[in-house]
């Protein structure tokens, strides 16, 4: 009886220890949360995650452009009735940057004013939006065919009751011509935290 009891106890303890040892902390070193619809793009968020990404098709060859962990993904420069948005990241392994030069109806003098842009859509074929793409060491003007930049979410952020930044999120997509290349940018999404580090006045 005693031997049986001891054996049973030992088995129960072994069973418990083996179960508990199954837990192993997985490394979570991903830079961004993937979009379940397209794993090469970050999922669309409105949280101020400092991410952007888009499908970038050049002459029917698909690439991806997206923010990278070692680059400031967004800089904003506000002027008199203008707002320049620079999105900087990588296209495969090479540097990539795109600039939207927006004409805004109200003056933007600080990131706290960005909330007035919530819900606005800027069509790249209109006068309110000019677009440039960084290539060969300079920002080059493009010949736009269609497309727009839409600001879905622009909120002023207070942390511990102190003004801390602005959350600026939205989508973009366009067709254009750059030199002799036909470029189709689709499923573009961005989610930025704008604060003193990446906002400046002209």
């Amino acid at each position: 009886m005693k031997l049986r009891t001891i054996l049973l106890t030992a088995c129960l303890s072994l069973f418990s220890v083996s179960f508990l040892s199954c837990y192993d902390e997985e490394a979570k070193d991903e830079y961004y949360e993937k979009d379940p619809m397209d794993w090469d793009l970050p999922v669309y968020t409105e949280s101020g995650l400092n991410l952007f990404g888009a499908q970038y098709t050049v002459n029917d060859v698909l690439f991806y452009v997206r923010s990278s962990a070692d680059t400031v993904p967004c800089r904003m420069v506000a002027g008199d009735g203008t707002l320049k948005i620079y999105m900087t990241g990588k296209r495969y392994k090479s540097d990539f940057s795109i600039c939207f030069d927006l004409k805004v109806s109200q003056n933007i003098s600080s990131y706290a004013d960005l909330s007035v842009l919530e819900g606005d859509e800027f069509f790249i074929t209109s006068d309110s939006c000019d677009m440039k793409i960084y290539k060969s060491g300079e920002y080059m003007s493009v010949e736009p065919w269609s497309g727009s930049l839409r600001i879905n979410n622009a909120k002023t952020l207070y942390v511990d009751n102190k003004l801390s930044g602005a959350i600026f999120s939205g989508t973009f997509g366009m067709e254009l011509k750059l030199r002799n290349d036909t470029i189709d940018i689709s499923y573009g999404r961005f989610d930025f935290l704008i604060d003193d580090a990446n906002f400046s006045l002209e």
Binding site: Y23, K28, E30, Y31, E33, G48, V72, L193, A197
Partner: peptide, 26 residues
């Protein structure tokens, strides 16, 4: 619980250390 992008100024270059899902774990 919200994640925010953030920057640190290291050797004159910015580093974006966005802590995605840092709270998940055992």
């Amino acid at each position: 619980v919200k994640q925010l992008g953030s920057f640190s100024d290291k050797e004159e270059t910015y580093s974006n250390y966005n802590p995605i899902l840092a709270g998940d774990g055992v």
